[in-house]
Amino acid sequence: MAVIETFGLSRSFGNIVAVEDLTLEVEQGEVLGFLGPNGAGKTTTIRMLAGIIAPTSGYAVVAGFRTDHEVERLHEVIGLLTEAPGFYNRLSARRNLEFFAGFYPYVDTQTQVDKYLRLMGLWERRHDKVGTFSKGMKQRLALARALLHEPQVLFLDEPTAGLDPEASREVREFIKDLSRQGRTIFLSTHNLAEAEFLCHRVALFRRQMLAVDTPQNLRQRLFHRQVVVQMDSAEDSVVDAVRKLDFVQAVHREGSRLIVELADFERNRPNLVECIVTAGGRIQEVSETEYSLEDVYLTLVREETEGSNATKS
């Protein structure tokens, strides 16, 4: 069941189109990574989905509520982690959370505030002013604030931006736990390793949707699978023998390595190995070219840039 649905969602600011014709579905319990470069329209999209700004055209439904017409009801069931934590620095961590919890009448404020202060490791600092907190602590407190009312859907805008590696890891682990609890999470990030670690699917976005799928499917869609054969030395005779195979689509030699693209990858990989051995090649290792999500991302963004440049010219 889709918990987040957008239908041709668009937003312009004057002549500038920030988000164009975004159509997307996010299933219950899914973590969707929303990836894109700075200025791609990620925050604008999150603001539209969280009912903070209205779309110029199209609409979105989140947890059954239209984000443009049913804002108060929507805000009862979503949690938003904004890009900047945004707290009252002269008030204590506890008082900050109590204030925000005060807008959810069905929430047992004391229980929930205590629960999340402990869960986020901020219990010992609960009476301290937020202005004395490190960025990582503020980010954890912001996560606590987003969760006080136990929302079904969470929008996280760059949750680890600006955090040191340890704080980033803590926040990522916590998001992973939230995912295990079955919450639907819309995660905006440009940290690709984070997206790969946390997300069931990723949406690559730059003003408009470039692709949306699992990281694995995106790799397969964009890149041919290649066998990498590491040998003692890649002799000409071996390379020639490989080239003559009818299922071989391309062969590249890099020093003592052969990189081979195959038709029907799974079936023909053993045949390739057999051919190399027969031709006298001494194989050290057989592996597959690894493409990262970064490769996928950069390829798609490059293609989109080239496409829009071609359209302009």
Binding site: A50, G51, I52, E72, R73, H75, E76, I78, G79, L80, T82, A84, P85, G86, F87, Y88, N89, F100, F103, Y104, A142, R145, A146
Partner: peptide, 18 residues
Amino acid sequence: IEEKQSRSLEPLLATPVR
């Protein structure tokens, strides 16, 4: 102005308060 500087308005606007 302090709400603007601390950027606390956006999370506040994501609560059910009108």
